[in-house]
């Protein structure tokens, strides 16, 4: 009897008014707003709450935290905030989404859930360079997460690919460990925030190598060099390094949608100004949608707007 009761209490709920895919800043903000409106909400997260910021060492441009804080800490705070108002977070990867006239089905490895409205806030993943040797040396010299793997490069010479804000921010963090860092940038100028560029000027471990492209990764059992080519002269050379961190852009996590929603040429989800997608009842928020700026602050704004639109959508649906 006792066993039966325990079993029943462990049965998962699978029907919600609103579902959110992704527990990054956009998804968790939407969860806060929806829960406060007393909309029954579930959030699916395949990794840990925070999304991509969870592996960002330091965030100092999100208002309200003048001294900055780690991405992991911010993600954890956002998670606690959404749980406070009653959102449910399921630690499950979504594998597919299907629509019928009444409901939206969200397929996961642990069964199918249904909801009346959906916010896709599944974020992005780092882009690979797709050059020779890259695949062989991931985890053996090549990394996409400085906050995770920096201790492996204590006292070593390394390369960071990409001089955008992520590349420069993470180089500053890596300089606490590495002996020297060359930042290889494809363009003739870095594109990071000026405050970050000012900081690398004061850091004698960091050097910029502009207008160069990475053409290959070299080594035997582990990475021993990065081959680069000058885009001005065509001259090729090998940088003798044991580590390479790649920050050359982001691609949207939309594989599970399998063509369900209209996307732009880079596969980001197209939305209208009210964050509606091409399918009724499905909204998109944060980095996964077509937008000109991908920041915690913009994702939070998207999450609030998407939640507001879901509330209005459900009101209308329930009236009708």
């Amino acid at each position: 009897m006792q066993f039966t009761l325990m079993k029943e209490s462990k049965e998962k709920r699978t029907n919600y008014e609103a579902a959110i895919i992704g527990a990054g800043p956009a998804g968790l903000t939407a969860a806060i707003y929806l829960s406060r409106a007393r909309i029954d909400t579930v959030v699916f997260e395949k990794l840990i709450p925070g999304g991509l910021i969870a592996s960002t060492d330091w965030i100092e441009n999100y208002p309200g935290f003048p001294d900055g804080l780690s991405g992991g800490e911010l993600g954890e705070r956002m998670k606690r905030h959404s749980l406070r108002f009653g959102a449910k977070i399921e630690d499950i990867e979504v594998t597919g989404v299907a629509l019928d006239s009444e409901n939206i089905s969200i397929k996961t490895a642990e069964g199918t859930y249904s909801a009346s409205a959906l916010i896709v806030a599944s974020g992005t993943s780092p882009v690979r360079l797709n050059v020779s040797g890259e695949e062989n040396f991931i985890g053996k010299g090549i990394s996409f997460c400085a906050a995770c793997d920096a201790p492996f490069f204590e006292g070593e010479d390394i390369v960071v690919v990409g001089a955008g804000s992520s590349g420069i921010q993470e180089s500053l963090y890596l300089s606490k460990f590495a002996r020297s860092i060359k930042i290889v940038e494809f363009l003739s100028h870095p594109t990071a925030e000026q405050i970050l560029l000012d900081r690398i000027k004061d850091n004698d471990k960091i050097e910029l190598l502009l207008f160069h492209k990475v053409i290959g990764f070299i080594g035997e059992d582990s990475l021993s060099g990065v081959e680069v080519e000058s885009r001005e002269t065509g001259e090729k050379k090998v940088l003798d390094v044991s580590g390479a961190f790649i920050y050359v852009g982001l691609s949207p996590n939309t594989g599970f949608l399998d063509g369900l929603l209209d996307v732009d040429p880079k596969e980001f989800i197209k939305t209208d100004p009210e964050l509606r997608t091409s399918r009724e009842g499905v909204f998109a928020a944060g980095d996964v949608r077509t937008t000109s700026l991908r920041q915690v602050a913009t994702a939070v704004g998207d999450g609030a707007l998407a939640a507001h639109k879901v509330i209005k959508y459900l009101e209308k649906k329930n009236e009708g």
Binding site: G139, K140, S143, C145, D149, P151, F152, E154, S222, L223
Partner: peptide, 21 residues
């Protein structure tokens, strides 16, 4: 945890060739 024991990173790298956790 490499945050608490950074020297373990070197040990792991030497033992396994891995530079990631």
């Amino acid at each position: 945890n490499l945050s608490k024991y950074p020297s373990a990173a070197k040990e792991l790298k030497e033992k396994t060739g891995q530079t990631g956790v």
